[in-house]
């Protein structure tokens, strides 16, 4: 686990721990989706994976261009395209559009429920990997485990999330049959909400 705001520089390139683990999480999600569809012998696996990849690209592009959507005047200086990214609600909007895009494609192309189930498995996996990789210091803790910083023990909230999200994924894959339409997706969605509810009291 790394500190969230640590950065590494290689020549002119700088990457933060958070950004690195976002990439790793996305790759892990893609891998799990691929495996999931392969195991269930879904016919249009390649097309579904391609759409997932497009969703990720849409997410990244919207996040990058969001400042220019909110404030088009920034485009007066084209150099600003290099400097600005993100901003108010950028994460939610970019992620939301990506999810909607995948959802609409799955309806339009009449994919089986496995596409949405694999999508949810990919998202849950990405959340597990990201939570495992980047430290999240919670409230000061009464327990002897957690992150020690300047003599104070803090809840390792990211670890809590990671553990709970892992259980959600396992529960959906092991306890719910894949043949039940959207049952795995609903289980994962519900599980993620419950997991958040269980770990949130320890978060600042």
């Amino acid at each position: 686990m790394t500190e969230p705001f640590i950065t590494w520089s290689v020549g002119p390139f700088t990457i933060s721990a958070q950004m690195l683990f976002i990439f790793i999480a996305a790759a892990a999600g893609y891998g799990v989706m691929s495996l999931y569809l392969k195991k269930l012998h879904v016919e249009n696996r390649g097309e579904i994976l391609g759409t997932f990849l497009t969703s990720l690209i849409i997410c990244a592009v919207i996040y990058k261009l969001w400042p220019f959507i909110l404030d088009p005047q920034l485009l007066i200086s084209p150099g600003n395209l290099l400097y600005f990214a993100g901003g108010p609600y950028a994460v939610y909007v970019s992620a939301g559009v990506a999810v909607i895009y995948f959802f609409l494609q799955s309806i339009r192309k009449k994919w089986s429920h496995h596409s949405l189930d694999s999508f949810m498995a990919a998202i849950t996996t990405a959340l597990i990997v990201f939570s495992l990789g980047v430290k999240n210091y919670g409230l000061p803790s009464p327990f002897s485990f957690g992150y020690m910083y300047e003599g104070v023990m803090y809840h390792a909230v990211n670890f809590y999330y990671s553990w709970l999200f892992l259980l959600v994924l396992l529960a959906a894959l092991i306890l719910v049959p894949s043949s039940k339409k959207y049952a795995r997706s609903i289980t994962m969605l519900t599980g993620l909400v419950i997991a958040y509810g269980l770990a949130a009291p320890f978060q600042v």
């Binding site: 009464p142 259980l167 396992l170 092991i174 306890l175 269980l198 770990a199 009291p201 320890f202």
Partner: peptide, 19 residues
């Protein structure tokens, strides 16, 4: 898995109480 799920939920609720 069910035992682990129940035990985990119980542990988090207990931790919240302690917190």
């Amino acid at each position: 898995l069910i035992v682990i799920l129940v035990a985990s939920a119980g542990a988090f609720l207990w931790m919240e109480q302690q917190q």
